[in-house]
């Protein structure tokens, strides 16, 4: 998946009305709550076959961190 496509997908996963940018800090998003984290876990599992652990969420600070977690699944 292309990075630009993922950013649009992320907007939908978080049910966010503003566009998502790579450098955005997730903590700044009003929508970055436990529901969004679960939605991200489910999306990664379904689409990238990547299991995000609870530990991972401690490390994820930015949208870019999320992209890195997908490995080569996001180009």
């Amino acid at each position: 998946m292309k990075k630009t496509d993922f950013l649009v997908e992320l907007e939908d996963i978080l049910q966010r009305e503003e566009p998502c940018r790579e450098e955005d800090a997730l903590e700044d998003y009003e929508e970055w709550d436990s529901l969004s984290k679960m939605a991200v876990m489910a999306y990664y599992d379904k689409n990238f076959n990547v299991k995000i652990s609870l530990q991972d969420f401690q490390e994820i600070k930015t949208v870019n961190d999320l992209i890195t977690l997908a490995g080569d699944k996001i180009e």
Binding site: S34, M38, M41, A42, D45, K51, S53, L54, F57
Partner: peptide, 10 residues
């Protein structure tokens, strides 16, 4: 919630 979600999907 997140821990339970982690359990349910794994």
């Amino acid at each position: 919630g997140i821990e339970v979600f982690d359990f349910t999907i794994s």
